[in-house]
Protein backbone atom coordinates (compact mmCIF):
# COMPACT_ATOMS: atom_id res chain seq x y z
CA UNK A 1 0.00 0.00 0.00
CA UNK A 2 1.29 3.49 -0.87
CA UNK A 3 0.83 4.76 2.63
CA UNK A 4 3.65 2.67 3.99
CA UNK A 5 6.32 2.98 1.35
CA UNK A 6 8.19 5.85 3.04
CA UNK A 7 8.39 3.80 6.21
CA UNK A 8 9.57 0.85 4.14
CA UNK A 9 12.31 3.05 2.68
CA UNK A 10 13.40 4.07 6.16
CA UNK A 11 13.41 0.52 7.46
CA UNK A 12 15.33 -0.73 4.41
CA UNK A 13 17.96 1.94 4.95
CA UNK A 14 18.12 1.14 8.64
CA UNK A 15 18.50 -2.56 7.94
CA UNK A 16 21.22 -1.85 5.37
CA UNK A 17 23.01 0.32 7.91
CA UNK A 18 22.82 -2.31 10.63
CA UNK A 19 24.00 -5.02 8.23
CA UNK A 20 27.00 -2.92 7.20
CA UNK A 21 27.76 -2.13 10.80
CA UNK A 22 27.77 -5.81 11.71
CA UNK A 23 29.87 -6.61 8.64
CA UNK A 24 32.34 -3.94 9.74
CA UNK A 25 32.54 -5.41 13.22
CA UNK A 26 33.16 -8.85 11.78
CA UNK A 27 35.69 -7.63 9.22
CA UNK A 28 39.23 -8.78 9.89
CA UNK A 29 41.31 -5.98 11.29
CA UNK A 30 44.03 -6.52 8.69
CA UNK A 31 42.11 -4.68 6.00
CA UNK A 32 43.33 -1.45 4.54
CA UNK A 33 43.00 1.36 6.99
CA UNK A 34 40.77 4.20 6.20
CA UNK A 35 42.80 7.26 6.61
CA UNK A 36 42.91 9.16 3.39
CA UNK A 37 46.64 8.51 3.31
CA UNK A 38 46.33 5.60 0.93
CA UNK A 39 44.63 7.84 -1.56
CA UNK A 40 46.90 10.74 -0.94
CA UNK A 41 50.29 9.08 -1.03
CA UNK A 42 52.39 11.18 -3.35
CA UNK A 43 55.70 9.38 -3.25
CA UNK A 44 58.23 12.22 -3.13
CA UNK A 45 56.64 13.79 -6.17
CA UNK A 46 56.10 17.48 -6.73
CA UNK A 47 54.06 19.68 -4.53
CA UNK A 48 50.49 19.26 -5.63
CA UNK A 49 48.41 16.34 -4.57
CA UNK A 50 47.25 15.98 -8.15
CA UNK A 51 50.29 13.84 -8.89
CA UNK A 52 48.70 10.48 -8.44
CA UNK A 53 50.14 7.13 -7.59
CA UNK A 54 48.89 4.24 -9.67
CA UNK A 55 46.69 1.86 -7.72
CA UNK A 56 49.47 -0.72 -7.77
CA UNK A 57 51.85 1.76 -6.20
CA UNK A 58 49.37 2.52 -3.51
CA UNK A 59 48.75 -1.17 -2.95
CA UNK A 60 52.40 -2.12 -2.78
CA UNK A 61 53.00 0.77 -0.44
CA UNK A 62 50.38 -0.31 1.97
CA UNK A 63 51.81 -3.80 1.84
CA UNK A 64 55.40 -2.84 2.44
CA UNK A 65 54.40 -0.39 5.12
CA UNK A 66 51.74 -2.41 6.83
CA UNK A 67 50.19 -0.13 9.41
CA UNK A 68 51.33 -1.47 12.69
CA UNK A 69 48.91 -2.65 15.26
CA UNK A 70 51.00 -0.83 17.84
CA UNK A 71 50.14 2.59 16.51
CA UNK A 72 50.13 4.73 19.64
CA UNK A 73 47.13 6.80 20.60
CA UNK A 74 49.32 9.63 21.86
CA UNK A 75 52.74 10.52 20.58
CA UNK A 76 55.07 13.35 19.68
CA UNK A 77 57.66 13.08 16.92
CA UNK A 78 60.24 15.58 15.73
CA UNK A 79 63.33 15.56 13.57
CA UNK A 80 65.07 16.82 10.48
CA UNK A 81 63.80 15.86 7.05
CA UNK A 82 65.94 13.72 4.77
CA UNK A 83 68.67 15.72 3.08
CA UNK A 84 67.72 18.83 4.98
CA UNK A 85 70.13 21.00 6.89
CA UNK A 86 67.53 22.91 8.82
CA UNK A 87 64.18 21.79 7.48
CA UNK A 88 62.39 19.81 10.14
CA UNK A 89 59.04 18.35 10.86
CA UNK A 90 57.16 17.79 14.12
CA UNK A 91 54.03 15.68 14.46
CA UNK A 92 51.79 15.34 17.49
CA UNK A 93 49.14 12.64 17.69
CA UNK A 94 46.33 12.83 20.19
CA UNK A 95 43.73 10.13 19.71
CA UNK A 96 42.65 10.24 16.09
CA UNK A 97 43.74 13.83 15.62
CA UNK A 98 47.12 14.98 14.48
CA UNK A 99 48.84 18.33 14.24
CA UNK A 100 52.07 18.78 12.34
CA UNK A 101 54.43 21.60 11.57
CA UNK A 102 57.03 21.61 8.84
CA UNK A 103 59.51 24.41 8.55
CA UNK A 104 62.91 25.25 7.11
CA UNK A 105 63.67 28.08 9.49
CA UNK A 106 62.73 30.81 7.05
CA UNK A 107 60.25 31.04 4.20
CA UNK A 108 59.00 27.45 3.88
CA UNK A 109 56.59 26.45 6.59
CA UNK A 110 53.18 24.90 7.06
CA UNK A 111 50.81 24.01 9.86
CA UNK A 112 48.82 20.90 9.10
CA UNK A 113 45.90 19.17 10.72
CA UNK A 114 44.27 15.84 10.07
CA UNK A 115 43.67 12.31 11.18
CA UNK A 116 45.82 9.59 12.68
CA UNK A 117 44.07 6.28 12.30
CA UNK A 118 45.46 2.75 12.23
CA UNK A 119 49.06 3.82 11.78
CA UNK A 120 48.39 6.21 8.90
CA UNK A 121 48.57 9.98 9.04
CA UNK A 122 46.74 12.21 6.57
CA UNK A 123 47.05 15.93 7.20
CA UNK A 124 46.40 19.03 5.17
CA UNK A 125 47.21 22.68 5.61
CA UNK A 126 46.82 25.99 3.86
CA UNK A 127 48.01 26.58 0.31
CA UNK A 128 47.85 22.90 -0.59
CA UNK A 129 50.15 21.66 2.16
CA UNK A 130 49.80 17.89 2.52
CA UNK A 131 51.44 15.39 4.86
CA UNK A 132 51.04 11.64 4.57
CA UNK A 133 52.96 9.23 6.75
CA UNK A 134 52.93 5.97 8.63
CA UNK A 135 53.62 5.90 12.32
CA UNK A 136 54.25 3.48 15.12
CA UNK A 137 55.31 3.80 18.72
CA UNK A 138 58.89 4.61 17.68
CA UNK A 139 58.85 6.77 14.58
CA UNK A 140 56.80 8.44 11.84
CA UNK A 141 57.88 8.35 8.21
CA UNK A 142 56.41 9.79 5.04
CA UNK A 143 56.31 12.92 2.92
CA UNK A 144 55.27 16.50 3.51
CA UNK A 145 54.71 19.18 0.88
CA UNK A 146 54.63 22.84 1.75
CA UNK A 147 55.09 26.00 -0.30
CA UNK A 148 55.96 23.96 -3.37
CA UNK A 149 58.67 21.90 -1.70
CA UNK A 150 58.34 18.21 -0.84
CA UNK A 151 60.39 16.65 1.91
CA UNK A 152 60.67 13.00 2.88
CA UNK A 153 61.18 12.33 6.53
CA UNK A 154 61.65 9.66 9.12
CA UNK A 155 61.44 11.17 12.57
CA UNK A 156 61.47 9.65 16.02
CA UNK A 157 59.52 10.25 19.17
CA UNK A 158 60.72 13.07 21.38
CA UNK A 159 60.18 14.09 24.99
CA UNK A 160 59.77 17.52 26.49
CA UNK A 161 61.50 19.95 26.17
CA UNK A 162 61.92 18.71 22.60
CA UNK A 163 58.88 18.92 20.37
CA UNK A 164 56.55 21.44 18.84
CA UNK A 165 55.79 24.97 20.10
CA UNK A 166 53.39 27.60 18.82
CA UNK A 167 52.71 31.23 19.59
CA UNK A 168 49.84 33.36 18.30
CA UNK A 169 49.71 37.04 19.16
CA UNK A 170 48.02 40.21 18.03
CA UNK A 171 50.43 43.04 17.65
CA UNK A 172 48.95 46.42 16.74
CA UNK A 173 46.14 44.86 14.77
CA UNK A 174 48.30 42.34 12.92
CA UNK A 175 48.35 38.69 13.82
CA UNK A 176 51.64 36.93 14.36
CA UNK A 177 51.78 33.14 14.27
CA UNK A 178 55.07 31.49 15.05
CA UNK A 179 56.13 27.87 15.29
CA UNK A 180 59.22 26.19 16.61
CA UNK A 181 60.47 22.65 16.38
CA UNK A 182 62.89 21.87 19.18
CA UNK A 183 65.07 18.90 18.25
CA UNK A 184 66.52 16.42 20.73
CA UNK A 185 69.96 18.06 20.43
CA UNK A 186 68.43 21.38 21.49
CA UNK A 187 68.46 22.96 18.02
CA UNK A 188 65.48 25.17 17.30
CA UNK A 189 63.94 25.54 13.86
CA UNK A 190 61.23 28.15 13.76
CA UNK A 191 59.34 30.46 11.45
CA UNK A 192 57.13 33.43 12.02
CA UNK A 193 54.19 34.47 9.85
CA UNK A 194 53.27 38.10 10.28
CA UNK A 195 49.85 37.76 8.69
CA UNK A 196 48.76 34.12 8.59
CA UNK A 197 45.30 35.05 7.34
CA UNK A 198 46.65 36.42 4.07
CA UNK A 199 46.35 34.42 0.89
CA UNK A 200 50.09 34.01 0.65
CA UNK A 201 51.49 34.80 4.08
CA UNK A 202 55.17 35.55 4.17
CA UNK A 203 57.26 33.76 6.73
CA UNK A 204 60.62 34.63 8.18
CA UNK A 205 62.87 33.03 10.74
CA UNK A 206 61.42 33.05 14.22
CA UNK A 207 63.20 34.66 17.15
CA UNK A 208 64.92 32.45 19.68
CA UNK A 209 62.55 30.54 21.91
CA UNK A 210 63.18 30.39 25.64
CA UNK A 211 61.81 26.91 26.23
CA UNK A 212 62.05 27.11 30.02
CA UNK A 213 60.18 30.43 30.24
CA UNK A 214 57.80 29.63 27.40
CA UNK A 215 58.42 32.98 25.74
CA UNK A 216 60.14 34.47 22.73
CA UNK A 217 61.10 38.09 22.13
CA UNK A 218 60.00 39.45 18.75
CA UNK A 219 61.31 42.99 18.63
CA UNK A 220 59.54 44.74 21.46
CA UNK A 221 56.83 42.09 21.71
CA UNK A 222 56.96 39.15 24.07
CA UNK A 223 55.35 36.08 22.51
CA UNK A 224 53.85 33.55 24.88
CA UNK A 225 54.42 30.09 23.61
CA UNK A 226 52.33 26.94 24.01
CA UNK A 227 53.75 23.50 23.63
CA UNK A 228 51.75 21.26 21.31
CA UNK A 229 51.91 17.77 22.69
CA UNK A 230 49.84 14.77 21.79
CA UNK A 231 51.07 13.00 24.89
CA UNK A 232 49.73 15.61 27.29
CA UNK A 233 47.04 16.89 24.93
CA UNK A 234 48.08 20.54 25.21
CA UNK A 235 47.44 22.56 22.09
CA UNK A 236 44.73 20.20 20.81
Amino acid sequence: MKRNTPLLTLLTGGALGIALLIASMLAPSSKTPTSYAAAATTPSSTATAVALPSPSTAASRSQTATPSANAPLRADYAGRVKGGIHASVAISIHGTQAIAYACNGSSVEAWLKGTAVGGRLALTGKNGAVLTANYDSRRAFGDVSADGVTYSFSVYTVKKPSGLYRAIADVRGATIKAGWIVLPDGTQVGSLESNPGAAAPSATGAPALDVAAGTAQDGSTVLHVTQISGVTGTGF
Binding site: A23, S24, A27, T32, Y36, A39, V117, G118
Partner: peptide
Protein backbone atom coordinates in the same frame (compact mmCIF):
# COMPACT_ATOMS: atom_id res chain seq x y z
CA UNK B 1 36.24 4.40 19.40
CA UNK B 2 36.98 4.99 15.70
CA UNK B 3 38.60 1.92 14.22
CA UNK B 4 39.92 3.48 11.06
CA UNK B 5 38.56 0.57 9.06
CA UNK B 6 35.26 -0.83 7.95
CA UNK B 7 34.10 -3.16 5.20
CA UNK B 8 35.51 -1.90 1.97
CA UNK B 9 33.88 -1.75 -1.43
CA UNK B 10 35.99 -3.10 -4.23
CA UNK B 11 36.82 -1.13 -7.34
CA UNK B 12 37.91 2.10 -5.78
CA UNK B 13 41.37 3.19 -4.81
CA UNK B 14 40.58 4.10 -1.23
CA UNK B 15 37.70 4.33 1.22
CA UNK B 16 37.82 8.10 0.94
CA UNK B 17 37.37 7.78 -2.80
Amino acid sequence: HPTGIAVNIAGFSSPGS
